[in-house]
Design a protein around this nucleic acid. Structure first.
Length: 421
RNA sequence: GCGUCAUUGGUGAAGUGGUUAACACACCAGAUUGUGGCUCUGGCAUGCGUCGGUUCGAUUCCGACAUGGCGCCCCA
């Protein structure tokens, strides 16, 4: 029979990958608690409008990368391509802004119809943090510090924080006009993509890779020169707050981001890892003071980031960092079928005492059972034969030291805990 | 979406237009009837991404499709 393959750009998760994802998730959750962020989840699909109006309908993501479908009730739906717009829709719909402050985190699948590559999938998982209700540069620094803490907590080195400011609407419009003035006489020299961008989104011209060597681009006006006093002051405060937290960063005026909703602070965190492909941006985010009001809510300033799990795992494996190791506390080996019931009962006792433990239910010989111990990275091997069954004495072997002990059955749990290195 | 390279078992792979598709790891069984990770013996692709074509004959040549890698666009 024909074997059915998974859809292009998707992944099955099991074994090491599964364990690694759970490890990352646990770390993210514990850091979220430290920073007082609350778990958030939105539907996997939304009305298409959420992303058209939220992310911006001239962005590449919305224009050519969404998974759209019409449901049986003739409604236009879109599989969530990114988290922020969806969370904002929910904040507005549930009127959560009445709380004043909302600090939330999520861990959800995202969908983008693109040509797959390592670190770029059609279904990928992202976690993200969003801090709503504070128009304070402390919040920007907090958000960036969370991202850095997670990456460092995973043991990654060579982490680079690149930040920039797009300023407020006024600054951005001034800059937009200045760019258009600058490029207008040189339009013929730009690539076809950039000619498109000229009218719709001239900011994107400056980080075009095709034209990056052109003089017109190199000497294009810089956003930082067009920030008004307030925006300038805000950016300075963000940098000062990063200094307070001891976070190193580079100001990179070419970061403009592909989502329309950003204002003021934008940032990207990259990994300088050898043999890493072009998809090396592990984390991207920034401030979006107008998104909530653009989607029909009140003025509700916010800042946040998203981070892709698959790229993170690529970085971890490139660095030789492994969280995917299997491990259990105890494995029960039995000599013959006569001891199976006894072993099964003992196994249940261990599990009721929160010890990770297992035994083999199929009839494997002792050698096979010991092999199971190895493949599970077992700390303690318990051997049950006729003698043990009749005398309530347990034979237990520390699998690291290989030393064997005879102990009383009722001391078993305590013994394992005490000898746990 | 564009360009380019690739696709042999659970994994890493060698190989050839023609009778049994190397080798290694992993896995399974036994040597070893209460103790594994060493050693030895045996087993393990009726099959070389899928479908067509050329051919007396194709895993090997050609085409389409599928999937993956790299680069671009974009982004996590």
């Amino acid at each position: 029979m024909e074997i059915i393959q998974r859809p292009k750009g998707t992944n099955d998760v099991y074994d090491e990958t599964g364990r690694t994802i759970l490890y990352i998730r646990d770390l993210v959750e514990s850091i979220a608690k430290e920073y007082n962020y609350n778990y958030f989840r939105t539907p996997t699909f939304e009305r298409t409008e959420v992303f058209k109006r939220g992310v911006g309908d001239t962005t590449d993501i919305v224009e050519k990368e969404t998974y759209d479908f019409v449901d049986r009730g003739n409604r236009n739906m879109t599989l969530r391509p990114e988290g922020t717009a969806a969370v904002v829709r929910s904040i507005i719909e549930n009127k959560l802004y009445v709380n004043g402050i909302n600090k939330v985190w999520y861990f959800m699948p995202m969908f983008r119809y693109e040509r797959p590559q390592s670190g770029r999938l059609r279904e990928h998982f992202q976690f993200g943090f969003e801090s709503f209700g504070t128009n304070s540069p402390y919040a920007d620094a907090e958000i960036i510090s969370i991202a850095v803490k997670i990456l460092k907590g995973l043991g990654l080195k060579g982490i680079k924080v690149n930040i920039n400011s797009l300023g407020d609407i006024e600054s951005r419009n001034n800059y937009r006009e200045a760019l258009k003035e600058h490029f207008r006489p040189h339009l013929d020299n730009l690539c076809s993509d950039c000619k498109e961008r000229f009218d719709r989104n001239p900011l994107r011209i400056i980080d075009c890779k095709v034209d990056s060597e052109l003089e017109v681009i190199k000497n294009a006006p810089k956003i930082l020169d067009y920030l008004n006093d307030e925006s300038k002051k805000y950016f300075e405060s963000v940098k000062k707050n990063l200094d307070i937290l001891g976070i190193e960063y580079n100001v990179n005026p070419n970061i403009v981001r592909g989502l329309d909703y950003y204002t003021h602070t934008v940032f990207e965190i990259t990994a300088e890892i050898k043999d890493f492909g072009s998809q090396n941006v592990l984390c991207g985010g920034g401030r979006y003071n107008n998104l909530v009001s653009n989607l029909g809510g009140p003025e509700y300033p916010s800042v946040g980031f998203g981070m892709g799990i698959e790229r993170l795992m690529n970085a971890l494996s490139a660095e030789g960092i492994d969280f995917g190791k299997k491990e259990i506390d105890a494995y029960i080996c039995y000599i013959s079928d006569n001891e199976k019931d006894y072993a099964f009962k003992l196994l249940n006792e261990l599990r009721n005492n929160n010890l990770r433990s297992d035994m083999c239910y199929t009839n494997r010989n002792l050698k096979g059972q010991f092999k199971e111990c190895d493949s599970n990275n077992t700390k303690f091997v318990i051997i049950i034969g006729e003698e043990e069954k009749n005398t309530e004495v347990i034979t237990i072997k520390n699998n690291n030291t290989k030393k064997e002990y005879k102990i009383n059955r009722n001391e078993l749990v305590e013994f394992i805990r005490r000898n746990y290195e």
